[in-house]
Design a protein around this nucleic acid. Structure first.
Lengths: 208, 208
DNA sequence: CAATATTGGAAAGTGATACTCTCCAAAAGT
DNA sequence: ACTTTTGGAGAGTATCACTTTCCAATATTG
């Protein structure tokens, strides 16, 4: 198919597809002469993946680029690829205090979680804990444990539902589930918070 | 205190404070003559709140402005203010399919959740479900239920830990916990995913 | 009292991000 | 022969979150 069809099938403007090609997010089509190139299903798929990660997933193009590089990586250990793809999804961390970092390490150790040594998630988590602390809101151990338990619950379900057939598919699924599951989880949390708030402070002004 | 002290105490550059003042994120100080103004603890607090929401919370200034407006709102019903403040935290939704919207409504109904009628979270959630669907990854009911159960668990803990003393403080705490608890939850989920992946696909390459 | 520094306020400039538009000559379709 | 369409490249645009520069009016210091 030509670029026009790729555009109409994915609802991405031609100019944007050209931009993604220039930025190396989308592999070039098969060149046919000097002024045209043919695209196939893999381009449709890749384009949809980019749009999903950027749109519903809320990732920047820079992060998408990193994620795609890992998805395309043909490494030997699946767990390694998963870890790398995962790493590419994580927002930049602010520097965190040693106290919070230690608290995070303790939490990870208590749960017996085996995480990648330099995982930016630790710093990210510690930074968020610090930010809360600076505002005078200490996230106590009880609350932090509820978060960890809830996180474990969805994470186990996420990994259990990963397709096991072929490697590339598994890595893509892991990336998609992690990226798009985030907004899903946060939206559900806010909905549940509304309900909890209604039950605690409730008035006549609710809907169901 | 003068602007220089406000700046040094919060580690926010003077130019940035001036910018926030211009943008109406920070209330003006008490004017003393034509060329100076006095700031107090409330400004320190507000500035720290802005920085926490923008930094660790990842909110845009536009969203912070909306949140602050609700925090400052003196409405009669606490649950109402909470709902409004909450609404200001939510990212813009993409249009969602009627099928997904219905699925979300069903989920909310099944759990007996009482949520604000036009909550953008419904559309946001439905949009994320659609995005997943378009990529060929259906989030089945079982997985969605794990998400909802986990969300309920943290939401209940969130609301239970809210300070009950004074209204303004409760609203601020709700906003802070919702905004900063999001990154905390997602980071924990990714850590737990790493562990789950290590257990399922694990090799010798992990740390603990 | 003179010299220097700081302040509030406003305007303009900056760098990053994610496109979008304009041009072009080669090629395809009609 | 003539009108599209294409790939490619460059320039232009809008938004965001600052940062810089300027100003005249004070304050502070020597």
């Amino acid at each position: 198919m030509w670029i026009a069809e790729l555009s109409s099938r994915t609802e991405v403007p031609v100019a944007t597809i050209k931009y993604y090609l220039r930025e190396g997010l989308l592999p070039a089509g098969q060149a046919v002469g000097a002024t045209r190139a043919r695209y196939d299903e893999s381009h449709v798929r890749r384009l949809r993946l980019i749009r999903a990660l950027v749109g519903a997933g809320g990732l920047s193009l820079a992060r998408v680029r990193g994620v795609l590089a890992e998805v395309d990586e043909e490494s030997s250990e699946l767990h390694e690829v998963l870890g790398a793809a995962h790493g590419a999804l994580i927002p930049d961390a602010v520097p965190a205090s040693p106290e919070s970092l230690q608290r995070v390490d303790q939490l990870v150790a208590n749960h017996g979680w085996r995480v990648h040594s330099g995982s930016p998630d630790r710093a990210l988590l510690a930074g968020a804990l610090d930010a809360l602390e600076k505002l005078g809101y200490h996230l106590d151990d009880e609350l932090l444990e509820s978060y960890a338990a809830a996180a474990k619950q969805v994470a186990d379900a996420d990994v259990a539902h990963l397709p096991a057939d072929d490697r590339a598919r598994t890595v893509e699924a892991a990336v998609v589930v992690t990226a798009l599951g985030g907004p899903v989880l946060l939206a559900l949390r806010r909905l549940a918070q509304q309900d909890a708030s209604a039950r605690r402070y409730g008035s006549a002004h609710f809907d169901k």
